[in-house]
């Protein structure tokens, strides 16, 4: 377990240093992207349309924040992670096409994402689910909001952050997946649990 502090844009070389269970803090630019933003970004890519910003080396945050607008200023009130598995169908293409280096969310991701992270150099940082104010405290300001027509949770919020974390590296760029390890162990424990409850498999 090593602590790392990275500033965006993050290089592939830096990302490859990280291993599961390491702890990462990010400063610089990150953006929120949930189901709809992923879908639209990939559609834009297919059509050769450019995105509102260059995502290379940045961190994508699976998050639908609560944001308050006073006059022309947006303020992030609460911004915890959402369940990442919903983005599993998009994430490998997303990492490949846009060279995003860090995916932040909760609950982990599957085999397709793990393989893409190993191939293209990216990691998954788990942020404590529900810890929305700890996350909001690390946001210095809202740089802009794109695609607000998707609704507040689904829009792409572009954020300036300072020491955003702690992120537990749960998928590294070497094919390791902490969530899958835990799940595998749980499966191994199942027999013992069934026995305790007097059940057969």
């Amino acid at each position: 377990m090593t602590d790392y502090r990275f500033r965006t844009p993050i290089s592939e070389e830096e990302i490859r240093k990280l291993r599961v269970n390491d702890v990462l803090y990010i400063s610089g630019t990150m953006f929120t992207a949930r189901d709809q933003a992923h879908r639209r970004a990939l559609e834009y890519f297919k059509q050769g349309k450019s995105l509102p910003l260059n995502l290379e080396g940045l961190a994508a945050f699976h998050c639908g924040p609560i944001v308050k607008k006073t006059k022309d200023m947006w303020t992030i009130i609460a911004a915890g992670p959402t369940t990442s598995t919903r983005m599993e169908i998009f994430e490998d293409e997303f990492i490949k096409n846009f060279k995003v280096r860090v995916i932040i969310g909760k609950g982990g991701m599957g085999r397709r994402t793990t393989e893409a992270m190993a191939s293209y150099g990216a990691v998954y940082g788990a942020f404590t689910g529900g810890a929305a104010i700890l996350a909001a405290k690390a946001v210095r300001n809202v740089k802009s909001v794109e695609w607000l027509d998707l609704g507040m949770p689904e829009a792409m919020w572009i954020l300036e952050v300072e020491e955003f974390g702690p992120l537990t590296i749960a998928i590294d760029s070497h094919g390791n997946n902490l969530f899958m390890n835990v799940q595998r162990k749980a499966e191994e424990n199942k027999k013992r649990i069934y026995q305790k409850l007097g059940l057969s498999q």
């Binding site: 639908g64 009130i77 609460a78 404590t128 929305a132 104010i133 700890l134 909001a136 405290k137």
Partner: peptide, 17 residues
């Protein structure tokens, strides 16, 4: 820590209300 912050700043514990 987050629960404490929510009470201190009077903001929702989680963004998913």
């Amino acid at each position: 820590d987050n629960i404490e912050c929510a009470e201190k700043y009077q903001t929702p514990i989680c963004q998913d209300t």
